[in-house]
Amino acid sequence: MMKFEDYKKEFLLFLELERGYSEQTINTYKRGIDRYLLFIKKKKINYLKIDKDLILDFQASVSESMGSRTFSRILSTLRTFYKFLHNEGAIDDVVLNQVKSYPSPKYKKSIPTFLSEKQILQVLEKINNDKKLSDIVKLRNQSIIMLFFTSGLRLEELKSIQLKDIDFSKNTIRVIGKGSKTRLANFDSDTKDFLIRYLKFLKKYPLIKTNFNNNLFVDEKNKNLSRHNIQYLVMKNLKTLTLNSYGPHALRHSFATHLLNSGVGLGAIKSLLGHENLASTQIYTHVSLGKLQETIKKSHPRGEK
């Protein structure tokens, strides 16, 4: 019988080579598998012969340290892992069905945070008035905020943009999304202006082939910004507002919600966000409904009654 660690290595390699998952996604799977490994080692369980009772025991053992959403994600990881083991001939149908049929815990899906255009302008002004920042850092940070807001990019997508991916003549950026799928993201003329002024400071505009493989967003030493760098600067600037969440995803959510409130169909928004299925996009209908109800309250003669 192969050791758990050996199957884990093969499984993670399978996710990379066969599924084409990003490093971030693979690390998420790895964390879930490692948490499960601690449990089976402590309980001295044969991981090839688990059932629903053992999964319930695992859920109970981690319930105090993680919420239902996190456990649901780990459970999804285990289903994929055990399906991999089944395909490798390591487990039979009975064990696989025990894992697949274990019910996911229910949790309340949060409605995405929605920023108005006025709030975005406040953030841009805050950055511009920050005397601790150099002019180039101000333009870089403003470009990042605007690109998230007008393109709906994910954090990893924005971090990975290279100069060769940008087409200023069409206001588009080629991005590689989840599952290594490529799509074109659009940005508006204001974002274009921020980006060009930022690149001129870097002396990288007009774009030339010798710079094509350079990352778009760099620090003052010309080193690529990390996920943490970008996450931190976005959260720092959004925290001046009253919001439910402050990360880059709040800006991505705002992009989608503005489109929906302007009459853009869910199918088109799904494509622009790089969602694989419509269910991921439908959460924005809740935001739009809330906006509609607010409008009725303010505008309809019976709205406040």
Rank of each mutant, 00 (worst) to 15 (best):
M2V: 07
F4V: 06
E5Q: 11
E5P: 00
L12Q: 04
L17S: 14
G20H: 10
Y21Q: 06
T25Y: 06
N27E: 14
Y29E: 05
R35W: 04
L38M: 10
L38G: 07
F39G: 03
N46W: 11
N46D: 15
Y47K: 02
Y47N: 06
D57V: 00
D57N: 13
S61F: 07
S63Q: 15
G67K: 08
I74S: 01
S76H: 09
T77S: 10
F84S: 02
E88G: 02
V94G: 00
K100Y: 12
Y102V: 00
P103C: 04
S104E: 13
S104H: 06
K106C: 05
Y107T: 02
S110M: 06
E117T: 11
Q119P: 05
L121Q: 11
Q122H: 08
K126M: 05
I127E: 01
K131F: 03
L133P: 10
S134R: 12
D135Q: 12
K138H: 11
K138F: 11
L139R: 11
I145P: 09
L153K: 10
L153P: 06
R154E: 03
L158H: 04
K159F: 02
Q162T: 08
I166R: 01
S169I: 02
S169K: 14
R174T: 05
I176N: 04
S180Q: 14
K181N: 11
R183E: 07
L184G: 07
N186T: 13
F187V: 02
S189A: 08
D190N: 10
T191C: 11
K192Q: 09
R197E: 13
K200L: 13
F201E: 15
L202I: 01
K204H: 12
Y205D: 03
I208D: 12
I208F: 09
N214Y: 12
E220C: 01
K221V: 00
S226C: 04
R227Q: 09
N229Q: 00
I230D: 07
L233D: 10
L233R: 01
N237Q: 09
K239T: 11
S245E: 15
H249S: 07
A250N: 12
A250H: 13
H253A: 13
A256H: 10
H258K: 12
L260S: 03
N261Q: 10
L272N: 13
L273F: 13
E276M: 08
E276K: 12
A279N: 13
S280G: 03
S280C: 06
T281V: 07
H286V: 00
S288C: 11
K291C: 00
L292N: 12
E304P: 01
